[in-house]
Nucleic acid binder design. Structure first.
Length: 395
RNA sequence: GACCCCAUCGUCUAGCGGUUAGGACAGUAGGUUUUCAGCCUGCUUACACCAGUUCGAAUCUGGUUGGGGUCACCA
């Protein structure tokens, strides 16, 4: 078994495109096959500087790196050769410097798609003539992908559903060249919440952006896989390894899923809590294990750590009203009596002040952190230290 | 418009002729508690519609409606 992920380097792939690579990886690993990355850079006008590197960065970061890599712009002669062969065989013709293929009207092209295991068929009359070799000497997708898939012996072509209408063109090329087509696996395209195809315009993010926003690769992978795939049963939280073991094309769904970030948020929290404190500390770039532990159950993304712990490093600017000031003074007085600066004793004092000044815990949080909620206060103050705590109280 | 694909809670989905239609997210009500989370418990919400096949249809067939995709010398 051999699969390929074939992005064009025209930008950074968003989460929908990246999911295709994940499915490639899962299928290949599950079947002890090979996973190729093929850069489809045959459109010189649309090339984006650095896109290729970003694509590889995404795969590497997610831990689904390809086994081999191919670049179409380096194989121009090969495509030309087959374009010529198509002309010689009488199925293609030249016009305006480009080579077109014409599918006979009466031709019937059909295949069984692995997604949903359904037969799809087109008639030649519905397939318009298409360019295989452009006047600049570069092949179009139709020719290049067929030639490469055949030459590299790809067994399963996994790609988005938007390619379904191109399959008859490909099938006709395979047939004309006397080649055996691979298994086609057309994944339903992921939709935005407004039900349109996921796109940059609609805020579809790339894995790199999600990573910068503090999402874990474990969560992203887990979430992406579940968008259109379900091993059956109730298991949802899975590692890459588990998914590899469970993966089967028959469990890929036929209908279009909608990308809902709420579930990714939840899943990210789940994965954050699954991490060891040490590992989490590494990922948020902190050495303070105690702090990380306090924050762990309160984080949705890694970036929340900074928000949650900011007041440790920087004195928050807080607007206190008259009644708050009374509490502050009281706090300072009571806290100064604390002998051993430990959570339990601090808590006792805080409780005492709360009762006697008739204020809620929220008020105390506001006084110390500037926010009405956050990390457990007594524990936080212990970590902060007595001296700094008093600094915060301005006494 | 033509051609293809699709249709179970708001969302991701389980189901594959007989189920009180299950789970998860979100929402909501409680519990735990030192705020907020987390954790635990409960609740709300779905088979698009119409025919047909069948003793029996979410499951099979046809149609309707709705949604999506494609119609470039882009991929």
């Amino acid at each position: 078994m051999k699969v390929r992920f074939a992005p064009s380097p025209t930008g950074v792939p968003h989460i929908g495109n990246t999911r295709t690579a994940l499915f490639d990886y899962l299928l290949a690993r599950k079947n002890k096959g090979i996973f190729i990355l093929r850069i489809e850079d045959t459109d010189q006008k649309r090339l984006v500087e650095g896109a290729e590197e970003k694509i590889e960065e995404i795969l590497d970061w997610l831990g689904i790196s390809p086994d081999e890599k191919l670049k179409q712009s380096e194989r121009l002669d090969t495509y030309k050769k087959y374009a010529k062969e198509l002309v010689e065989k009488g199925v293609a013709y030249e016009k305006d410097g480009a080579i077109y293929v014409k599918v006979p009207d009466e031709k019937k092209l059909s295949w069984t798609d692995a997604v949903g295991n359904k037969q799809i068929s087109f008639e030649g009359k519905d397939v318009e003539d298409f360019v295989v070799l452009k006047s600049d000497g570069y092949p179009t997708y139709h020719l290049a992908s067929v030639v490469d898939d055949h030459l590299t012996e790809i067994t399963h072509v996994i790609r988005g559903e938007e390619w379904i209408s191109s399959v008859p063109k490909h099938l006709f090329i395979y047939e004309s060249l006397g080649w055996k087509p691979p298994v086609f696996v057309h994944l339903p395209v992921i939709l935005s919440t407004d039900k349109s195809k996921l796109s940059k315009r609609h805020g579809a993010k790339s894995v790199l952006e999600l990573r910068d926003e503090g999402y874990l690769k474990e969560a992203i992978i887990n979430f992406m896989a579940l968008l259109g795939w379900n091993p059956g049963g109730d298991k949802e939280v899975m590692s890459l390894e588990e998914m590899v073991n469970l993966f089967d094309l028959k469990d890929v769904n036929v209908s279009n899923p909608i990308f809902d970030i709420k579930k990714l948020d939840w899943m990210n929290g789940v994965w954050i809590r699954k991490l060891s404190v040490e590992e989490l500390a590494k990922r948020v770039g902190s050495k303070d294990l105690k702090l990380v532990e306090l924050a762990q159950s309160r984080m949705t993304t890694l970036n929340d750590f900074g928000i949650l712990t900011n007041f440790f490093y920087e004195k928050p600017k807080i607007k206190l009203d008259q009644s708050d000031r009374i509490v502050v003074e009281r706090l300072a007085k009571e806290l100064s009596n604390v002998k051993t600066w430990k959570t339990e004793e601090i808590l006792l004092v805080l409780k005492k002040v709360m009762i006697e000044e008739k204020v809620k815990m929220k008020v105390l949080y506001k006084i110390f952190t500037g926010s009405e909620s956050g990390l457990p206060l007594p524990q936080s103050l212990e970590i902060l230290g007595k001296e700094k705590t008093f600094e915060r109280l301005n006494v």
